[in-house]
Design a protein around this nucleic acid. Structure first.
Lengths: 257, 257
DNA sequence: GAGTGGTCTAGACCACCAC
DNA sequence: TGGTGGTCTAGACCACTCT
């Protein structure tokens, strides 16, 4: 196949090279998981300098189409996402708490799920958390951090905050929150839940998040802020979640009412 | 301020330079909208080659922290997102159809909204659309494309599909769908709505989307698939939406039931 | 015209992987 | 050991913006 850069074109050579490779990926000529031509081969094919073909590959990486492995080569990316079902998580009638919901969803997607409990402790609300919970900065809160993994690979990192007067003396302060999870404990503790709100943002990860979630280049993250409101309108939990953007589909059900 | 690369460190010079600039951005020393030092200045400050400082800046661009403008310089990115309220859009009691909802949300965020009606036509369902609507490929459908803009800048591109037997002869086939929007017309036409489902994905944009939405580097897109289900369980509309990831917060309300 | 970022080259040395 | 990608250099020419 005669791949060729048009030197008279206004389009920079590295974009032309990326265009050709992208087309081969999207047409399936380069299937998911397949190896890309080596830099050396691309240099010969296109007659460009190494810096130019590396620019082309960097572009494809930034689009999330390609990953490179030092000493091995470049590959077409392929990973199927897991469907995260908001309604199954929060409607009491069919509620599955965080861990249980994740386990069920992951198995439905054919992946082996697991959960790390990284940290459960009493702490103080910083300004951000205080704003979420409607308390004052410095007020005591329960902090629960955990990490969700698929096939041994971390894909989600979540931190829950509960005002200390609600958490105190309950099983929420243990690693294992007991049957029904944290929401069951909150409801038992005289705070019947009325509704949840969830704010979804998308952005590129910080270098820290790239490491923690082992993200490839060109993979964004979802950032979720969930607040649980009791029937009196108080926020009884806030949960800050960062999820690998290529591993999840967030699925919401909305009544027409 | 003596910024300096440690040549004995294992961390590559370009990452060290990016770390320092990132820290200055996140601490506020470089405020949103502020100009970065020019490449020339960074070369002098850090004593590295141009390629190295350009690698550092490219990294910050891929993280969405920085934009560059040819001939002008590099700048810290700053654009506030608009809150998109799913519940206000779909609960009949307070429903605002697509255009009206967008206008209200944008004004709440202090931006000047507008909407393009790019295309309204009869067409055939391809395999993907047929799957969404539960019809056969090739079946006739109404296709409505439109573009949403904030302050004259496109931020969202949406395409709705409605099975032709539902759309035929209604105001849905006009540019102006009339009061209450497309859902009001569907309900009038003997298809009372029961629920909506919304699937949210996040990924990096294609070069096409970068152009259409005028996205900066390091900005992901939301991809929404919404399906409207009538009381008989039929999908009466599917809407495929691509949104600039840095301009929206998707906000969902979930009853605890 | 001076200063900026965008593209491209040709070469060097290194770290990692597979054989 | 040979091939791969990762980093870095020093230079060139171009296109764009501002004044």
């Amino acid at each position: 196949m005669p791949r060729q850069v048009d030197p008279t074109s206004d389009r920079p050579a590295f974009k032309q090279i990326a265009d050709i490779l992208r087309q081969e990926i999207q047409s399936g000529a380069l299937a998911p998981g397949a190896r890309l031509p080596s830099e050396r081969e691309l240099i010969d094919d296109f007659g460009s300098a190494r810096g130019t073909v590396r620019q082309a590959i960097a572009l494809l990486k930034s689009e999330g189409l390609v990953v490179t492995e030092h000493g091995r080569g470049g590959f077409v990316r392929a990973r199927p996402p897991v469907r995260r079902l908001a309604s199954n998580r929060f409607a009491r009638s069919q509620r599955k708490a965080g861990r249980a919901a994740f386990l069920a969803e992951a198995e439905a997607a054919g992946a082996k799920p697991s959960v790390d409990s990284l940290h459960v402790a009493k702490g103080e609300a910083d300004e951000r958390v205080a704003g979420w919970l409607g308390v004052s900065p410095g007020d005591p809160v329960l902090i629960r951090q955990r990490r969700y993994l698929l096939d041994e690979q971390p894909v989600e990192f979540a931190t829950s905050y509960v005002p200390w007067d609600i958490a105190e003396g309950t099983q929420m302060t243990e690693e294992d929150t007991g049957p029904g999870g944290i929401y069951a404990r909150i409801e038992e503790h005289a705070h019947p839940l009325k509704r949840f709100s969830e704010d979804v943002r998308s952005r590129m990860p910080t270098p820290d998040e790239v490491k923690t979630l082992r993200l490839g280049p060109g993979v964004p993250v979802f950032v979720l802020l969930r607040q649980a409101h009791d029937t009196k309108g108080r926020v009884v939990e806030a949960c800050d979640t960062v999820m690998a953007g290529d591993r999840f589909v967030l699925s919401y059900e909305l009544p027409a009412k």
